[in-house]
Design a protein around this nucleic acid. Structure first.
Length: 657
DNA sequence: CTAGGGTTAG
């Protein structure tokens, strides 16, 4: 409550500041009282006011005959402000003036249309123009590039060359951007060659977009090469490279470049911080994120726009939801993204009440919720078993004219199912106006598992199985199931399907951040330097947790092995290795944070709960679904989760495989 | 008259 009040107050003072900062502009009457063709005054007025509508009025009523330069200024203003309607009006006037065949004016009109998002108008004009120069072509290409129509821009380029127009650095940087957008390394290299041919390769704009293009195509090495050869660099060039590394999950390289950037005298911008913080959130690097936060504050930057939101997201995604709240309170401007990030954070931490409160406050604050907002709040409600609230918000979607998508329906099935209303959940699925998805049946199955309803569970499991022909994990597991009952022909069939469709199973891994470096583990990791210590620790822990009640759950292992081997297999799941490593390398009493790229395994979850009792530590596990805050032997998730494995196990147990 | 880099769920 209070945080919103303080923001409102803050915004209030900003507004008055902003108003007083506007230079005095001419009013309509002031303009009329002056000599009408004092065009300098008009132009100044045009540039300093929000939009020179009064100037437009004067043209409309015929009391002003603009010259070429005033038309251009008007068009430029329309372009800058994205005023399509006004721009069209100006175009209309131009068509009735002596400048209708003026190439420069036509180019400005074309670009105005393109920049205002009306590519049809731009293209119509482009096609009708009797003669086109390089700027015409460039404006059209740029227009396509900025409106995400990369292919349209790229096909225009050969036509341009055929007509004998020579591209310049403006044309080429736009084209390079297009190649990056569609991540086409092939086209990218060809355009790169053109940059050399037309002597634009050393231009900063072209160079920066080349760096970005290669990075987007996944060729960081070539991006680096172009970057190093770039004689004239600026912040954007650095950011393109840093963002490239960050996007690819190469946080360490990104950070190294960040350090180098500053050593070489370039100032980090909001873009730089956003990219780095973004990579911290996906990796869950809280310590590095905090360091960047401090760095950001020291640089004197305000938490505006993207940076603020990425910082907030970093804390939420790294498991520090209360720090995220603090950042939220310090944002200069709260928008839908900040609110959604908070809601998603609450949902992932199972904080239903906080999510509901946050939702209500954002509505009061006047922020219009979108589909993500509703999905987040519904998820939060279902996880916290806030049945009535969840139903209420689902109904509220209609009022905001948001058509529920399959994900929203899934959340409701989950909500009803967790509350034990299995029949309601089932009939809800049957009454749904859209086709139920795998996730929907999965949610019902999860609920059946939770409330031990085997009959409906079998039904749901079959639906899941029918609808999920393409998921890589399904095939691997299915092959395992067939193998375990000796149906080798079926195994071969599944393997063939996998091979034909090029499906690959992503290896499961876990990681921890210790003293600014990330340590990654895969199951049965044999290569780690501390391997022996880790295994020894687990031997001890296993003994201790078994004494206080831990029973290894071997049902999750689908291999042809005897009981002892199964236990051995479980023991070295990646999250367990990461935990042992963290226990060995962190000070006593500190919170341990483990990240995992798939959902945490049921046996490991149980083992970690017992370990939290033995070692008296708080352990936070972030998997792809949510945060597990494990302390004193219990977990914030309330032991509810559903893995693909358990779906298939349910399926196997209820069919005669 | 024309150009390059960024956040949000499952």
């Amino acid at each position: 409550m209070t945080k919103y009040k303080s923001i409102k107050r803050h915004l209030g003072s900003c507004r008055t500041l902003w108003q007083s900062a506007i230079p005095a502009t001419l009013t309509d009457s002031e303009i009329s009282s002056r000599v009408i063709d004092d065009r300098n005054i008009l132009r100044r007025s045009l540039n300093s006011s929000k939009f020179g509508l009064h100037v437009l009025d004067l043209i409309q009523c015929g009391s002003l005959q603009p010259d070429r330069s005033l038309y251009n200024t008007l068009l430029k203003r329309c372009t800058q402000l994205g005023k399509l309607k006004e721009g069209k009006l100006v175009h209309f006037h131009i068509l009735n003036s002596e400048f209708k065949d003026d190439l420069v004016i036509q180019n400005s009109v074309l670009f105005m249309y393109a920049r205002c998002g009306s590519l049809e108008d731009a293209r119509r004009l482009f096609d009708e123009m009797p003669c086109r120069d390089m700027v015409t072509w460039t404006s059209m290409i740029t227009g396509y590039a900025q409106n995400e129509s990369a292919n349209d821009a790229l096909v225009l380029f050969p036509e341009m060359l055929r007509e004998g127009a020579k591209p310049n650095e403006f044309t080429l940087s736009s084209l390079v951007k297009c190649c990056g957008f569609i991540a086409s390394y092939g086209y990218g290299k060809q355009i790169h060659a053109c940059c050399w041919k037309f002597g634009c390769h050393s231009n900063v704009f072209v160079g920066s977009s080349l760096v970005d293009m290669y990075a987007r195509c996944g060729y960081l090495g070539e991006a680096r090469l172009v970057f190093d050869e770039l004689g004239c660099k600026n912040e954007v060039s650095w950011n393109a490279l840093i963002t490239g590394h960050a996007r690819k999950g190469e946080g360490e390289e990104a950070l190294a470049m960040f350090v180098r950037m500053q050593r070489e005298g370039y100032k980090a911008t909001e873009f730089t911080y956003s990219a780095l913080l973004g990579s911290c959130s996906s990796m869950g690097c809280l310590e590095q994120g905090k360091w960047l936060h401090a760095h950001l504050m020291k640089s004197g930057k305000k938490l505006v726009g993207y940076v603020g939101n990425t910082l907030l997201h970093m804390y939420a995604k790294s498991g520090s939801i209360w720090d995220a709240e603090k950042v939220f309170g310090k944002l200069v401007k709260v928008d839908i993204v900040s609110c959604n990030s908070m809601l998603i954070g609450y949902a992932q931490h199972g904080l239903g009440k906080e999510a509901v409160q946050h939702f209500e406050e954002m509505i009061r604050f006047g922020i219009v919720p979108n589909d993500i907002t509703f999905l987040s709040v519904l998820t939060a409600c279902s996880r916290a078993r806030l049945l009535e609230e969840g139903k209420h918000y689902f109904g509220l979607m209609r009022k905001y004219n948001i058509e529920p998508e399959v994900s929203h329906y899934t959340a409701i099935v989950d909500l009803l199912g967790r509350a034990g209303l299995l029949d309601q959940a089932k009939s809800f699925i049957e009454r749904m106006p859209i086709e139920p998805s795998v996730a929907i049946w999965g949610a019902l199955l999860g609920a059946c598992k939770m409330h031990k309803n085997t009959k409906m569970g079998a039904y749901a499991a079959q639906r899941v199985f029918e609808l999920d022909p393409s998921y890589p994990g399904t095939h691997t597991l299915l092959a395992n199931i067939y193998a375990s009952v000796g149906r080798w022909e079926d195994v071969a069939k599944v393997r063939k399907i996998m091979k034909d469709s090029g499906l690959k199973k992503e290896p499961a891994c876990s990681w921890v951040e210790i003293e600014n470096s990330v340590h990654v583990f895969v199951a049965n990791d044999l290569a780690h330097p501390q391997r022996d210590k880790i295994h020894k620790l687990w031997e001890e822990l296993n003994q201790k947790i078994k004494e206080i009640g831990y029973v290894p759950d071997t049902s999750h292992v689908l291999l042809f092995v005897d009981q002892q081997d199964k236990e051995l297999n479980l023991q070295y799941h990646s999250e367990k290795l990461a935990l042992a490593f963290a226990l060995l390398n962190t000070p006593p009493g500190s919170i341990i944070r483990i990240m995992k790229n798939i959902r945490v395994c049921g046996d490991c979850h149980s083992a970690i709960k017992y370990v939290s009792l033995v070692v008296k530590r708080e352990i936070i596990v972030r998997d792809t679904n949510r945060f597990h805050h494990i302390r004193d032997g219990s977990c914030s998730c309330g032991d509810y989760w559903l893995t693909r494995l358990s779906i298939l196990l349910a399926f196997r147990s209820c069919t005669a495989l």
